[in-house]
């Protein structure tokens, strides 16, 4: 599957990319919301992992700008668990909310794969 990772933390982008690639997926990354939006439009992914707090365009702002024609499964990631939760994420159109830090990076890959698989079954 095609995976888009949008996060301003380079090491997180890199490690997620390696994890997804190790499972045979194609990955593109973006280090901020504006770049992420451009890449998304040009290369619609099957699943997008988007950080909430980024400089410029934040994760939620990015999701608002993505056209309704978008079909990707969206995973929102955040280190802040204070006022951000699954409900808020769902309101923004996300299908999953993951709190950082991840206990295990491979679990992130598995959950993304499951999301895409479930969607394919529904379709």
């Amino acid at each position: 599957m095609n995976v888009l990772i949008v996060d301003d933390e380079a090491l997180i982008c890199r490690s997620l990319m390696r994890a997804f690639e190790s499972r045979g997926h194609t990955v593109r990354t973006a280090s901020d919301g504006i770049q992420g939006l451009a890449t998304w439009r040009e290369w619609p992914p099957d699943v997008a992992l988007v950080d909430v707090l980024m400089p410029g365009l934040t994760g939620p702002q990015l999701l608002e700008k993505i056209e309704s024609a978008n079909t990707a499964q969206i995973i929102l990631m955040s280190a802040y668990t204070g006022d951000f939760d699954l409900k808020r994420a769902e309101e923004l159109g996300a299908h999953l909310f993951l709190a950082k830090p991840f206990a295990n990076i491979f679990e992130v890959v598995e959950r993304a794969e499951k999301l895409v698989k479930n969607k394919a079954h529904e379709g």
Binding site: E9, A10, L11, I12, R14, S15, L16, R18, A19, S22, A79, Y80, K100, P101, F102, N104, I105, F106
Partner: peptide
């Protein structure tokens, strides 16, 4: 905590990889 969390997540994830 927040500032440290992101790079630390990256480090741990990379080690796991």
């Amino acid at each position: 905590a927040h500032e440290l969390n992101n790079p630390l997540t990256g480090i741990r994830s990379m080690a796991q990889l």
